[in-house]
Design a protein around this nucleic acid. Structure first.
Lengths: 129, 129
DNA sequence: GCACTATACATAGTTATACGAGGTATGAAG
DNA sequence: CTTCATACCTCGTATAACTATGTATAGTGC
């Protein structure tokens, strides 16, 4: 985990979010995939791949899901499948929804800043041979 | 089992830009800061901070600059300052410019995918309270 | 001309992240 | 009962970013 250090209970610095975003965009994507309803592990991977070209490995997603669950951002429940094997479905908690909103805002701001930087670069695209 | 990339059709991507971008957005930002002309180390930090709210430490930027120089993405030259001390100015090479364009495109795609994911989340903003 | 300060460049060491490669468990099919 | 397919899980590793610190140069006060 990372987000807490020796910080006081509610002393979350907005500065930390930025730093976290640069790294934890994947964590945000995982939360976002659950926005419209519960999904199970492999389903999250497929969802993100189809919706955002974000290809995550199993070794990436499961640790993240466990971390998020430990932080109270989501819950899980085993569900028996008719044909197959039990699946662990994850759902957002209220805390998870709230955090996702904050991350989404911070991400948007961060992304906008970078896009601004890249404007000149991309404008030149038309001139490129 | 679990051979995730058993796709022969996919071929090999030039690089795993997506994966790199999630981490190396900072590297891209460093290249981007030099698009309009040469800057020296501390100047890059100040530029990024003012232009994109991206706050980088010296310990972050110098290793990146050295790495990029070693890869031929930029050149450096010492310049004597009237009042002060020599500064090491960095400039993009043609290779650096080309790479930055590729990264900018990949970033745009990646960013767009994530924004798409976050659409539903952000749309709910108005309903909150 | 010697400390003191400010600016600028540099790097060693720590931490955290994403991932690859393997392992476990369940049920279905042969 | 062996094999296959799906799904979950975890350890070890490479790498990236950051913290803290060190070095070098030059101007300022005495």
């Amino acid at each position: 985990m990372a987000i807490q250090r020796a910080l006081p209970a509610d002393g979350d610095q907005p500065d930390r979010w930025e730093a976290q975003l640069r790294k934890g965009a994947v964590e945000m994507a995982a939360l976002a995939s659950l926005w419209q309803g519960r999904l199970y592990g492999l389903e999250i991977i497929r969802f993100l791949e189809s919706q955002s070209q974000l290809a995550l490995a199993e070794g990436t997603i499961y640790p993240i899901l466990n971390r998020l669950k430990a932080e109270g951002m989501l819950t899980s429940e085993w569900v028996e499948a008719e044909a197959g094997h039990p699946r662990k479905y994850y759902s957002l908690t209220d805390a998870g929804r709230q955090r996702l909103r904050q991350m989404a805002e911070a991400w948007t701001s961060f992304s906008r800043g970078l896009s601004h930087l890249l404007e000149s670069v991309l404008q030149q695209q038309e001139k490129i041979q």
